[in-house]
Every structure is written in structure tokens, then in C-alpha cells.
């Protein structure tokens, strides 16, 4: 078992002929992901390696039955790409692109709210992987271990790799790892993933990685306390981040007294979540608790 993606996922790639798109499509294919189509407007009829390229997502879906999309389209056109995938009925949209204007994402998010069967992961994220079954994204595959029991959800990229690597080193495999992205407005949030992990039989415990900015961690902590039976270990990055400065991720900013690491850690602890205070020991802590 797993959440959101598995061996039945049929992936198409929007922006497949760009440099990043080509590179990561090949990485996904070599991991075993079933990549059935690519989309680049104007390049319909061509092939990227053995993958047929279409002009529109609707064409690609009709011809191949794709049910997921991975987006590598540059920021000015990325919101359009997400909406195109949604209107073509793609159920799982994973947007890797970093730098999409917030105003575009406000429209996208509110439009997708009208289509509850469609899930967006990202943008500005590493993607999602169910180890051994399906990788949609840019994460390094070899650090993962199939079979669970741990589910991972995170706002960050390399920080997630660090966490997964430590889990693998202490002998804890992963069911699914979801990078929900570092932008202020994103699709799937912490609670969506936690709720799916709670229902997934194979997932026995969850690691949740947050960072400064916004209030998603606080809301997730309250949700966990009220709804979750499985143990959760939390980590929050940015204790030393100064207020008013964006720390790399567009969403990682302490505004006034809002969104501090201290407030998030306190909210998690108050709700019974074990918070890891020293990243170097996260794997060991999980081994002890899970």
C-alpha cells in the first residue's frame, strides 16, 4: 500500500523536451515509473527517447490513458500548464516548477477547489515517490527503501532527502514520501497527506518536516491531535532565520510574530508530536519511537 501514486500510475510529462524535463523523465523511467506520454506545444508527433510527445494534455490523455502529470514548465507558463492538466481530467498533477507568481497560484488553487477529484502536489517541490513502485519528481532514488513503515511529508527538497536517507540508514523503509513544496500557496497540504497516511494500512508512522512561514504546521499539529492514531515525528527548520527575510523558499518567511519556528515547535509539542531538535539524530529518534 501507499498513498497517491503506485505501480498503476501512468505518467505524462509537461515540458518533456526541455533540458530538465528530459533529464528527469529518463531518471523516472529508469526507476520504473510508467511514463506514457510527454506534452510540448508544437512538438506533437515527435518522440523523447521512446516516449510519444503531444501538443496538448487532452490529446496525450486520450491517446495513452495517462492519469498523472509531472510539470517542468517555466514559471510564466506553469499555472497555465496546471490548469490545462486539470481541465483534461488528470487526477494527479505534480508541479516541480519554482518561481510561479503567487497571484497565479491563488487562481489555480481556487479553481482546483471546484474539482475535488483532482490533486495538485507542489509547486516548487521535489515531487512524490512510492519507493519501488513509482517516482514522480527530481528526488535521488537510491536513498529510498520500499515497503514502509514510514510515510514522509515535507515542505522542503534536500531536507527531505536528508530525512529519508537517515530513515534508510536506521533500517526504516518508506511507504510514500511527498514533497508538498516551499511556496506560500500550494496544492496538497500537510493535512491531506497525514489523513491519507492515517488511512493507509502499510504506513505505521509519519515524519513531518516543516519550516518557518505561514501556519500550516500549527494547523496540522491540531489535526494530528484530534484525528491521528499513528505516531508522528516532527522537524522544523529555521530556528535561526531572521524575521522579514525570505529564506530561499518563497513561503519561508517570518512576518512580524507570525510563522516562527518556535511557535511551530511549541504547537507540535502541545499536540503530542515528538519534535526532533537535532537533525543529525532524526533517524535514531524515529527508530526509537516507531
Amino acid at each position: 500500500m501507499s498513498i497517491f501514486v503506485n505501480s498503476h500510475t501512468k505518467l505524462l510529462v509537461q515540458g518533456i523536451t526541455g533540458q530538465e524535463g528530459q533529464f528527469h523523465t529518463r531518471q523516472c523511467i529508469s526507476y520504473g515509473t510508467n511514463v506514457v506520454a510527454g506534452v510540448t506545444p508544437g512538438k506533437g508527433g515527435q518522440f523523447m527517447d521512446k516516449v510519444p510527445v503531444f501538443n496538448t494534455v487532452a490529446d496525450a490523455r486520450e491517446a495513452t490513458g495517462a492519469n498523472a502529470s509531472m510539470i517542468f514548465v517555466p514559471p510564466p507558463f506553469a499555472a497555465d500548464a496546471i490548469l490545462e492538466a486539470a481541465d483534461a481530467g488528470i487526477e494527479m498533477i505534480v508541479c516541480i516548477t519554482e518561481g510561479i507568481p503567487v497571484m497565479d497560484m491563488l487562481r489555480v488553487k481556487n479553481y482546483l477547489a471546484l474539482k475535488p477529484s483532482i490533486r495538485l502536489i507542489g509547486p516548487n517541490c521535489p515531487g512524490i515517490i512510492t519507493p519501488g513502485q513509482c517516482k514522480i519528481g527530481i528526488m535521488p532514488a537510491p536513498i529510498h527503501t520500499p515497503g514502509g513503515p514510514v510515510g514522509v511529508v515535507s515542505r522542503s527538497g534536500t531536507l527531505t532527502y536528508e530525512v529519508v536517507h537517515q530513515l534508510t540508514q536506521v533500517g526504516l523503509g518508506q511507504t510514500t514520501c511527498v514533497g508538498i513544496g516551499g511556496d506560500p500557496i500550494n496544492g496538497t497540504g500537510f493535512i491531506d497527506c497525514l489523513s491519507a497516511f492515517e488511512k493507509d494500512e502499510e504506513t505505521k508512522a509519519v515524519v513531518m518536516v516543516g519550516e518557518i512561514g505561514g501556519s500550516a504546521e500549527e494547523e496540522a499539529a491540531a489535526w494530528i491531535s484530534a484525528n491521528m492514531s499513528k505516531p508522528v515525528v516532527g522537524f522544523i527548520a529555521g530556528i535561526t532565520a531572521p524575521p522579514g527575510r525570505t529564506m530561499g523558499h518563497a513561503g519561508a518567511i517570518v512576518s512580524g510574530s507570525q510563522g516562527t519556528a518556535a511557535a511551530k515547535i511549541a504547537a507540535m509539542q502541545k499536540n503530542g508530536i515528538s519534535v526532533c531538535q537535532d537533525l543529525g539524530t532524526l533517524g535514531a529518534l524515529c527508530k526509537e519511537i516507531f
Binding site: E162, G182, E211, A237, G238, T240, G248, Q277
Partner: peptide, 17 residues
């Protein structure tokens, strides 16, 4: 010097610790 914003923030925190 770190690759990735989240890991960079976590590394700053480690320096403090």
C-alpha cells in the same frame, strides 16, 4: 554553504546548536 533552502535553514540551526 548548502544545497536546498530547507537543508540550508536546518544547517544554520545546527551551527547554533
Amino acid at each position: 554553504m548548502v544545497n536546498g533552502a530547507g537543508l540550508a535553514m536546518a544547517t544554520m540551526d545546527i551551527i547554533k546548536q
